[in-house]
Design a protein around this nucleic acid. Structure first.
Lengths: 200, 200
DNA sequence: TAGATTGTTAATCGATTAACAATC
DNA sequence: TAGATTGTTAATCGATTAACAATC
């Protein structure tokens, strides 16, 4: 029960990215802050919330902090992700190699279209959605990326939840509701552009 | 100079989505709130910030509120978007029809690879990145989606800014800095998964 | 010691919410 | 009038920041 604030949690990946590229043995709160777009005081407070101490006059030990953040995020070991939907977006995400570099393995991808099931995407073979529940219960993956049309997003999410998925990243352009016990985040391209349109 | 809070701006697209699907002539703050995941009081306060008034005992007029939000977001008329990078992700985004439904036209897509330039994606023909500046200055598009590798993101962003782009949606897995006059938002898939990993 | 940088306090800021009078 | 729902106040909550003593 560490109870980090949501604001702190969203910055941890940004600190981590810097730490993974950092050649020096120590790093200052100011450098970390730059990577996250906040002030140095804010970065120090975030690390204090982790219970991680720096060295006055010196900074934070790079590799120790890196490992501590990885542990906090639950990515000490690689995580297995399942992609649901092998349309344009699902296929693009399955081919995206950046995920692997950051500790996520795309273990499986599903679709329902007869012409699509069985086709290959890189090392993966598209499986039928009907296999998803059994795969999830077998531990083939535990994090899901929803890349299905808006109309089927809630139904697929329900099936994922029912089978015990840990978390869902929703790319479908519709709100999906899940129990509080399941973590979910949504990325909505149109919403992002509309927000940008306001400012630009 | 209306000066909405950033929190309010991020909710406007969610209200708008509900309003676009709403069959009734009026809508309550509670319904709007449900679409955005906030309380009814919060939704009412957001609309008050727009200077939009409801009718006590009745609710808000659906089409008037819809038009008001569209106007506020600057999407009364369709906006033209340019995609930079015709790799997996850029191609998937170019094929995504949901953008058009919400008022954004993908006007052009660029790449630098000789084998890629000239190929077609749906109605579009991939253009060379060297054409981007001239296109931007001609008004072919004014919002950009960055879908290039991390290594070239900053360089491309600089060129976009130089040529007067209004806003940038950055899918590259790296922070890019732009002048305050240019709006930018970043979508980082790995970061999203890492955040989810913390909760799930 | 001198310089650098943390850890933390206190103040501020921004956003959310409950509650209820106003009024359709 | 009775019921519904807004508009807004006041309180609360959560997050950020400046500043500086502590200390490497």
């Amino acid at each position: 029960m560490s109870g980090l604030s949501t604001a702190t949690v969203t910055r941890l990946p940004r600190y981590l990215r810097l730490l993974e590229e950092m050649p020096r043995e120590t790093v200052s709160s100011e450098e970390l802050a730059g990577a996250a777009g906040v002030t140095a005081a804010n970065a120090r407070r975030d690390l204090a919330a982790l219970g991680f101490q720096g060295i006055r006059g010196v900074g934070y030990l790079t590799t120790e902090l890196r490992d501590r953040i990885r542990k906090e995020l639950g990515i000490e070991t690689r995580r297995r992700v399942g992609i649901v939907g092998a349309g344009n977006l699902g296929t693009a995400l399955a081919r995206y190699t950046g995920l692997s570099k950051r500790g996520f393995d795309v273990a499986v991808i599903y679709d329902v279209h007869p012409g699509r099931v069985g086709q290959r995407i890189g090392d993966l073979t598209i499986r039928h959605l009907d296999d998803m529940t059994a795969d999830l219960e077998k531990g083939v993956f535990d994090m899901a990326i929803l890349a299905v049309p808006a109309g089927s997003a809630q139904k697929v999410a329900d099936a994922l939840v029912e089978a015990g998925v840990a978390s869902i990243l929703n790319f479908a352009p519709t709100r999906v509701s899940v129990p509080k016990s399941v973590a979910m985040r949504q990325v909505d391209l149109s919403n992002e552009l509309q927000i940008l349109s306001y400012y630009g």
